[in-house]
Design a protein around this nucleic acid. Sequence first.
DNA 1: GTTTTCATTGATTGACGAGTCAATAAAAAC
DNA 2: GTTTTTATTGACTCGTCAATCAATGAAAAC
Lengths: 193, 193
Amino acid sequence: MPKLGMEPIRRAALVDATITEIGKSGTLDVTVSQIAKRAGMSSALAHHYFGSKEQIFIAAMRHTLSLYGAGVRGALAMAQGPRGRIEAVIRAGFSTTNFRREVVAAWLNFYVLAQTNAEARALLLIYQNRMRSNLVHDLRPLVGGRAEGAAERIAGLIDGLYLREALGRTLPSGDEATRQVLEALDLEIGAAK
Amino acid sequence: MPKLGMEPIRRAALVDATITEIGKSGTLDVTVSQIAKRAGMSSALAHHYFGSKEQIFIAAMRHTLSLYGAGVRGALAMAQGPRGRIEAVIRAGFSTTNFRREVVAAWLNFYVLAQTNAEARALLLIYQNRMRSNLVHDLRPLVGGRAEGAAERIAGLIDGLYLREALGRTLPSGDEATRQVLEALDLEIGAAK
DNA sequence: GTTTTCATTGATTGACGAGTCAATAAAAAC
DNA sequence: GTTTTTATTGACTCGTCAATCAATGAAAAC
């Protein structure tokens, strides 16, 4: 019963299944068979479309980052003024979506993968650059020449608080993290006056 | 030629070898045989002393965190005044030691492990609490009632910048990260006046 | 000096897993 | 309607690896 044009459908199903399985195990220690089974196909087919397990992971990473990017763009679309835009970037990063078990697991494991896999590293750099460039752009009118440094600090604070919330003692609260970054933002703005 | 009292020696050798191997592979995907071989013994002996691979990892994590803690304590011992003590904590975290390949790999993988392993999570919480408590203690005289919030932000910034430096486009520079956190610290102090 | 305890390993077990391949089947192209 | 292309899988290969165990040797205890 082979229907044509299955490739994109299969690929998408495999990517979804990969993220789910990584979320369940917490590691990249998931087998192609597990992934394929959850995606409703044989492991041979997964290999057919992706070639190797590593490529499946890369695709999953790309998808996770693209969901993140979409969230940021969505929030930016509604934001008013530079301060509002920065707030949008912050809130998007700490949305409950991003603290779901699978998403946290995906990020942590992608960090690990980025150490040794050039493609993974490149994707992470794109994410880092986009965040920095967004922040610099909107910080400029608020803090002028301090924008570059401030952006670096805000971006670092976002990543760090995400980590601490995700692995902290309490269940992750995006609200608390958001408050903290906004406070830091206000300090940056205040210092520029 | 069995000599007595080998246990602590073997355990230490295994822990060292584990960290080295994790550094080489970037993952926890290292075999007990690799570790044991590097430590100069059979894999059976490694199992004899640690029981399981997971316990070897936990011991390696404990050791890594304890080295980190020792670095912080060493820096604190020489520091003068609250501001100096905070600076010491920051500099210790970003010392070149902590950016060595093995150490970065250890941290990233311990984050992953902490998702699913209670012991690993507990160790990470101890680290987080100690950092926060150090910061709160010394921020108090500098920023008064703002100390808790400021400590959360400084701690988050340290973790986040460490991540970004470790996985960033340039080779990690503790100096740049240190400068950024000190700048944030000055903003916090300035805001409390 | 015999027994117990500690150190140590080679060999083995039992399981699992990534990637390949030949074979089947159906749609599309010609 | 024959050929080509796409979809799909079961079976298989080749390898790996964590954990166990029985066996060996030497120190310590008695």
